[in-house]
Computed example of a mutant assay.
Amino acid sequence: MSNTSPKRPAWLKVKAPTSKGYFEIKDMLKELNLVTVCQEALCPNMGECWEGGTATFMLMGDTCTRACRFCAVKTGNPKGVLDHDEPLKVGNAISKMNLNYVVLTSVDRDDLEDGGSDHFAKTIETIKENNQDMIVEVLTPDFSANKEQIARVIKAKPDVFAHNIETVEALTKRVRDRRSGYAQSLSVLKMVKEIDPTRYTKTSIMLGLGEKDEQVLQTLKDLRSVNCDVVTFGQYLSPTQRLARHLPIYEYVTPEKFSHWEKVAKEMGFLYVASGPLVRSSYKAGEYFLKGVIEKDRQKPDSNKFPSLADL
């Protein structure tokens, strides 16, 4: 694999956000000392999503205890520091942003005894208390595949539980931190369905890291085997050129190839597929689709029934 990235093609160029609403939200987040993954991950869709009623908040700070080689977030040891007022701050920010679909994600917090699962749950519960119609998606770490921690998050009733598998199995050790794993991520998605089959599950795959077609196909088969509902495909974009920290881009995958994988995944039975060079795991088009599905579900009787761990 080359240590230099190819020239960026025209289809990956986007206009910088310029609207008044975008800058008002940016200033408000800074004032509340809140972090969005939109900013930390340098997301190309940030302006479009913020103006369209969607935002992704990153809980528990901006320092991750893991060091995946695709990620822009800084790594280190937060030493157990946690802002216990953050759930209230996030709720306040959401009310000011006029959102209808919020995504909560976080850095990995292996320094916390529960991996931050209770903090996730309290944030979901606070949002739901303030606005029961708000649709909440969580994009979580793997919690080291601890079933009790995953169950704590699910019991707070997020509408969508997302956890990213990131890449194909053969590239996982090169792309992700050694404490992460392909089988471990699959087990998280499987546990969600075991704990509460009514929760929608979602994952994301980066392309452009050197994966082969047969490996991508096998990944899709593995995801369907654990009843994953939604998959997104996006182009890997190296956060920096520091090759000791971040992987170079192996190739820029064409829009036609992304369309191919969208077609394949839909034929395999995924409820929804978003696939394109600029697609990210939190993506407005996919969230708009899920919003429609979830609102229909809420009209059904017994839609809030939640099994206890004792029922498993």
Rank of each mutant, 00 (worst) to 15 (best):
M191Q: 03
I249Q: 00
A151R: 02
G116T: 01
K221Y: 01
R176Y: 02
K284M: 04
L207M: 10
D222Q: 14
Y272D: 14
I25A: 02
P239W: 09
E125V: 09
I205K: 02
C68A: 00
T232W: 00
T232L: 04
P6R: 04
E24I: 11
P6E: 05
R178N: 12
L290A: 13
I124W: 04
I195L: 14
V102G: 06
A41I: 00
T63F: 01
C228P: 03
A170F: 08
R174G: 06
Y101W: 13
A265C: 04
I165L: 08
F289A: 08
R179H: 08
K89E: 08
A244Y: 06
R280C: 09
V216R: 15
S281P: 02
A183I: 10
V253E: 15
R178M: 09
N92P: 01
K221E: 06
L82P: 00
K89F: 08
K30D: 11
H84I: 09
S282H: 00
D297K: 15
L88D: 10
T167W: 04
A265W: 00
Y200C: 07
C64M: 06
C71W: 01
F306E: 11
P248M: 11
R174D: 05
V153A: 13
D108N: 10
D142H: 14
V253H: 14
P301H: 00
N3S: 12
T167I: 04
S204A: 09
T201G: 13
T140W: 02
Q215C: 02
F57Q: 09
D302K: 08
S5C: 07
R69E: 13
L309T: 14
S144D: 10
R179S: 10
L32Y: 07
S281Q: 05
A55S: 15
A170C: 09
L271D: 11
A162C: 15
S185L: 02
G53L: 03
E86F: 06
P197Q: 05
S187Q: 14
P255C: 06
P255W: 02
L220Y: 09
A310S: 07
F120H: 12
D159F: 03
D83A: 01
T203P: 03
N33L: 10
N100Y: 10
P239Q: 08
G276M: 12
R298C: 03
Q241S: 12
N98R: 15
